[in-house]
Amino acid sequence: MLSRILQPHSTYNAILALRLTYILFYIFSFLSNGNFDVVEARVFIYAGCSQDKYQPSSPFESNLNSFLASAVSGASQAIYNSYALGNDSSSPPDAAIFGLYQCRGDLRTSDCSRCIESAVSQIGLVCPYSYGAALQLESCYVRYEHVDFLGKLDTGLMYKKCSKSVSSDVEFFRRRDDVLADLQAATGFRVSSSGLVEGFSQCLGDLSSADCSSCLEDAVGKLKNLCGSAEAADVFLEQCYARYWASGYYDSPTDSSNEDQIGKTVAIIVGVVAGLAVIIVLLSFCRKALGKNPIFFSFLGHATIPFL
């Protein structure tokens, strides 16, 4: 259902580019402090937005804000929770919101809280005024909708990434299939390894054990069918995901389809940021050479900053 309801709207790429710019600054900041794990946890994977929009200051917006605040607060206590707000008979019919958040099963609650806080801060920028939205970061996920989706199995494909192929490594395929068979048998979060092949899988907490098994079976099938002999592959369905990689290859998987535009967007933004840095240096030299006052710029609507 989500893959049909939550579709990119006309401003999605522009908003995503803006958000990714902020993410780049987060990454630079965290890397300078050596916080590699925290940065990785907040890496953007995908997002989806509904076409239908709510009105500012509406009852739905009030309930949405309550849900997002509850998700941030709840993530400091538990890695999963679901919510239903405004769905009682006394509330307006357009006020109902159903939502959940979930962190990867091996995340500490402190890291989970930071990841969900990052996701919540992004979802409104990526999907402004949307009646439904989902945002997946590397280690956490946030979703809300106007209709009740909780506990209802849906295995629509949301995202896939496949690395380069390994065409004739029989041992690799044997190890990979062992890992995938183990991941498929999970009922929540599971990590598996066989030789140099590793992987993990997870279902959303609102699924029953039987539905989780069905979802993971579908995810593993798509890993094999869509990514073939890839050395590393990720498949995210609407309510579960499965990933595997050969040791040493997972750091640089590339998408085998034309559907993933995130890497291109990041490359463009990196180029823009690098270009801005060059311009700033040149302007600084010009200022010093000409003896002018500091030059001020306004970047993305923020307070102006002097470049000395």
Rank of each mutant, 00 (worst) to 15 (best):
V126I: 15
Q184S: 15
L85W: 02
Y12W: 10
S298D: 11
T21C: 05
R114T: 12
A17C: 06
E145A: 10
S252E: 13
L183D: 07
G74I: 02
R42S: 09
A95K: 02
I269P: 05
A210V: 13
D52S: 12
S208C: 00
V179Q: 03
Y159S: 08
Y12I: 03
L64T: 10
G275F: 02
S82R: 12
Y26M: 07
V179F: 02
R42H: 08
R243C: 05
I262G: 08
R190G: 03
S256Q: 14
S208L: 03
K53Q: 13
N293D: 11
S121N: 15
T265W: 05
R175Y: 07
F30E: 06
A133P: 09
L226I: 12
A277P: 00
F30A: 04
L157C: 05
Y12A: 07
D94I: 06
A267I: 06
Q51R: 13
Y83Q: 13
R4A: 14
C286Y: 06
P56G: 09
S50V: 06
L223H: 03
S298P: 00
S82L: 03
V166I: 14
L18H: 08
E171S: 14
T11E: 15
S165M: 11
V272A: 13
V39D: 07
D154A: 12
I279E: 11
A96S: 15
V197G: 05
N87R: 10
Q102N: 07
D251L: 12
P56H: 05
V72A: 09
I295W: 12
Y26W: 05
G291C: 01
C203K: 01
G188R: 11
E198W: 09
Y141H: 14
L153C: 06
C215H: 02
Y80M: 00
I45F: 01
R4P: 00
A289S: 09
Q184F: 00
D169M: 08
R42M: 12
V147D: 12
F60A: 09
S213I: 07
D88V: 09
C127K: 04
F36M: 10
L204Q: 08
E259S: 15
V126S: 10
A219S: 13
T11D: 15
L308Q: 11
S256F: 01
D154E: 14
S10N: 10
F173Y: 08
L6N: 10
Q122M: 14
G156Q: 05
Y101P: 07
Y22E: 14
N65V: 06
I123F: 02
D234A: 13
S32E: 10
D37S: 08
E138F: 01
T187K: 12
V120Q: 04
C203G: 01
